[in-house]
């Protein structure tokens, strides 16, 4: 090991990411955990106890004794939360599957396009990010409303006589999620597909595999890391999504993001909202842990 300035820089390089994680991840997380263990109160901030370091260690110890799992207990008692979680996971899961179906052909076409087109196609895939997310979701209202673009177009070509009620339903939420998260699915899929050695499918064809067999036996299984990465990138934020169900969903669209919102802003029950958030985090960590395990179990990839 080198001593002096070199090692100082080295140490800083190692420590900096940890500082970053501590400041931007661990600290906010611990605050949320702490609030989830507090009680709601009519105060500013709206929970108790509040730790004031200036009041000394005694007050801190007294505060710690006040912490309890009552918010979590409330969560378990109210069936609304359970239904919201299940509904969120269901909508997120369905939306992830639909996004995968929409993204795969796109990513496949991108990966098989002439090499000089590919950077442009990648740019196009992320082009929606240039516009505000909120505006793009609002635009879907204009498309999906009963007298919106879609219904007028379908009525115009005589396909329907009565407008389709899509807006303010779970279907609209699904459409919104698929649309919004498509790039997060396309990019990892594209990268997994573009990385594959084209000689692999040629070898399969040479060994008697027809095009469909080539796809299902070679291309698809080898794109699994991309499928997993894309699915997690869609599923995890979709499960906690608030804006899309709020704008496109109906009053009966139950998602945990909306429940969180109403706990925070309508009920001003911060401990309940924080507990709900922590439980959601725990639920989402399970698939992540599974992913990590499959990833380390089989080092798959094209050369």
């Amino acid at each position: 090991m080198s001593a002096g300035r070199g090692s100082l820089v080295e140490r800083a390089a190692i420590v900096l990411p940890f500082v970053w994680l501590a400041v931007f991840f661990a600290a906010p997380f611990l605050i949320v955990v702490k609030i989830s263990l507090s009680q709601a109160a009519l105060a500013q901030p709206p929970y108790a106890p509040v730790f004031e370091l200036s009041e000394g260690l005694g007050a801190l110890r007294a505060g710690l004794r006040e912490l309890s799992f009552s918010a979590y207990a409330a969560l378990a008692e109210d069936a609304l939360y359970l239904r919201a979680y299940l509904s969120s996971l269901w909508i997120a899961g369905l939306a992830t599957a639909l996004t995968l179906c929409a993204a795969y052909p796109l990513a496949f076409a991108m990966a098989r396009a002439p090499a000089h087109w590919q950077p442009h196609l990648v740019m196009l895939a992320i082009a929606p990010f240039w516009t505000s997310f909120l505006i793009r979701v609002y635009a879907w209202i204009a498309i999906l409303r009963d007298e919106g673009l879609l219904n007028r177009a379908l009525a115009g070509i005589g396909f329907i006589t009565e407008p389709l009620h899509i807006f303010a339903t779970d279907t609209a939420v699904l459409i919104g999620i698929v649309y919004s998260y498509l790039p997060f699915m396309v990019l990892p899929l594209y990268s997994a597909l573009a990385r594959q050695d084209p000689a692999l499918t040629e070898a399969a064809a040479d060994l008697g595999a027809k095009p469909l067999a080539c796809f299902w036996r070679i291309t698809f299984p080898l794109s699994r890391p991309g499928i997993l990465a894309g699915s997690l990138l869609v599923f995890i934020p979709a499960a906690g999504e608030f804006v899309i169900p709020d704008l496109l969903g109906g009053s009966d669209t139950l998602m945990i993001g909306k429940v969180l919102w109403s706990e925070f802003f309508d009920n001003r029950d911060w401990p309940a909202a924080c507990a709900a958030a922590i439980v959601l985090l725990a639920l989402l960590l399970i698939p992540l842990a599974l992913w990590e395990r499959t990833r380390s179990a089989e080092p798959v990839g094209g050369r």
Partner: peptide
Amino acid sequence: YERPVNMMFQSHALFP
């Protein structure tokens, strides 16, 4: 896939 020839690829192209 219907030709009576087979090929050994330079990269070997074994299915990983």
